[in-house]
Amino acid sequence: MEKSIKHTISLLVSNKPGVLTRVALVFARRGFNIDSLVVSKAQSPEFSRMNIEATGDEKTLNLVLAQLNRLVDVIHAVDHANEDVIQRELALFKVSCPPEKRTEVLQIAETFRGQTVDIGDETITLQVTGKSSKVDAFHTMMDPFGILELVRTGKVLMSRGKAATA
């Protein structure tokens, strides 16, 4: 078995119904699990941008990329695993937080530049943005307090400087 690594694939696709299914089927057929998926409008309304995180070996990844690029509705699909690109993610953490823990939790949140979006007697909801690794680290820090709910947007990415995000 080749070793599995995490890939971040960006796609520019036609903004049409069914495109997401076609893309998802390419992953599903080879049992390539999708870890996160973001779909949004691109600058031009005829196109959408997809960012997909998936874990798998190099050979399957190359096959999947070629198959994605073969789709008529895919303008292009590129893997950014080995590239320095801007990547961001947003997450909401609902943490168990009785009044006596509040200061501690808020201190940690501040270190992560987290924002308080909701606060109650027993809970606090924090928003954290940044690289996925930062969100992961915040997750670890919040665990001991008791995370009640967690939602992450999935990774979005963009090339640095003048380069267009392929």
């Binding site: 069914g18 299914t21 076609r22 089927l25 057929r29 789709l71 008529v72 509705d73």
Partner: peptide
């Protein structure tokens, strides 16, 4: 039929 045939067509339209 679109959904059923996705993986067996080169392309499809509604």
């Amino acid at each position: 039929i679109l959904g059923m045939s996705f993986s067996s067509v080169k392309h499809s339209y509604m």
